[in-house]
Amino acid sequence: MYQESEIVDLLMVIFLTPIMVANVRAIHVPDKRWFVGGYLAVALGYVFTVLEGFIAPEALNTAEHLSHAVVGALFFGGALSMFRSARARVSEQR
């Protein structure tokens, strides 16, 4: 069965994501696609968390934890890309 906090998480994703879309388009952050992908994976994980209380608990639980691994990989990719571009700029300045 689902928990209240999981429903709250999902509701926040549902209501805040459309607002965030406009801001994501407006900002200029290098390699933001990695982080956008990571956020979407988090949101997907919340959906799986709630759904596993109704259907296919084992499969959706595995999918939820898989989404966590994907979040980690995407955030790592974004951080690595930011780190490299920042280092490249520092090297250019020298």
């Binding site: 934890h65 898989l66 691994a69 980690g72 990989a73 955030f75 790592f76 974004g78 951080a79 690595l80």
Partner: peptide, 16 residues
């Protein structure tokens, strides 16, 4: 999956 997530996120934290 959880261990993978933890390792990647920790690495992302350090890099950032």
């Amino acid at each position: 999956f959880d261990a993978t997530a933890l390792v990647f996120l920790a690495a992302a934290f350090v890099l950032l």
